[in-house]
């Protein structure tokens, strides 16, 4: 199925996704008593990186440049199937839940290979943590979406989030949907390498996860990685926002506006979480992620009652 209305939020995503980073950073700056970087700083950085040339390690193979490209392409494709606050996505088919989740997997697969391609011990470490944590986060994501699918009796993301709005205030849906929202928040933080799972601004490579994987990337490759990261932030954010704020209006523009506002509020929330929480010790992260699975399983069980 194809929906022309879905192009609007997707266009907004492609243009505005990096802005989410600046919202997070501004929030953190406010908490730290600083003024923070300009709103358009992520764009300046992307533009700078695109103009620069790249340095490649002698160890690497073409996989090293392929990784960022596949990652970016897969995330962008997945975004075409994700609805924002009830607006039908550009494409939808029954079963696209899996397609979107597994596309994120493809993106990760190639990024991990690109990291291992350098032969650096640090990047091997980051790659290792990335696959480890995402293997634990993936069941939580899919089970949460299953719970929502049961509620709205649909197999496509468009249908799931589209039907959610009409009925969400029914009391029976309350607890399970809250649990799903909590699980999705954990997945959102983990998959986007945010505190408390990963610290995007840490300076010690030994404690990094995502950042250490991309140490060797530079120039346009690095720009692609950053851009793909912002798209992923937008994508997982819309999945979460669709549950928490299932307010729908009849008008397309109003819906999109509401969705975007909620996304930016989510970014503010992320900034607050990053400001008030410490990063978990790495050995505790699996428990955190398994807790997300537990939440989603409980939600599913409650939903089936």
């Amino acid at each position: 199925m194809f929906s022309i209305a879905g192009c609007l939020p997707v266009l907004l995503a492609f243009c505005g996704a990096p802005l989410l980073f600046s919202v997070i950073n501004r929030t953190k700056a406010k908490f730290a008593g600083r003024r923070g970087a300009p709103w358009l700083q992520p764009y300046f950085e992307l533009a700078k990186l695109l103009r620069k040339s790249a340095v490649y390690s002698r160890t690497t193979t073409p996989l090293f440049t392929l990784g960022p490209m596949v990652s970016c392409a897969a995330t962008a494709t997945a975004l075409l199937f994700v609805p924002l606050s009830g607006v039908a996505p550009v494409f939808a088919f029954p079963g696209d839940v899996l397609w979107v989740v597994y596309l994120l997997g493809t993106s990760r697969f190639f990024m991990v290979l690109a990291a291992l391609d350098t032969g650096s011990s640090f990047e091997g470490m980051g790659a290792n943590r990335e696959v480890f944590f995402s293997a634990l986060a993936e069941p939580a994501l899919l089970l949460s979406l299953t719970t929502l699918a049961v509620w709205s009796q649909s197999l496509s993301l468009g249908g799931i989030y589209g039907n959610l709005g009409a009925v969400v205030l029914a009391p029976a849906a309350g607890p399970p949907l809250l649990l799903v929202a909590a699980a999705l928040l954990i997945v959102f933080l983990a998959e986007n390498a945010r505190i408390p799972v990963d610290d995007p601004t840490t300076h010690l490579e030994l404690t990094m996860i995502h950042e250490v994987m991309i140490l060797d990337h530079s120039g346009p490759d690095f720009a692609l990685i950053q851009y793909a990261a912002s798209l992923r932030l937008w994508l997982l954010g819309s999945l979460l926002v669709g549950v928490v704020v299932p307010w729908r209006s009849a008008g397309l523009v109003l819906n999109v506006l509401a969705g975007c506002t909620c996304l930016f509020l989510l970014a503010v929330l992320t900034g607050i979480i990053e400001s008030v929480m410490a990063r978990l010790r790495l050995v505790r992260v699996p428990e955190f992620l398994i807790a997300a699975s537990v939440l989603s399983i409980v939600a599913l069980v409650l939903m089936m009652r």
């Binding site: 040339s53 790249a54 340095v55 390690s57 160890t59 140490l215």
Partner: peptide
Amino acid sequence: WQAETGPTWDC
């Protein structure tokens, strides 16, 4: 541009 090559950046 012409890409440069070097050793792996191992911090």
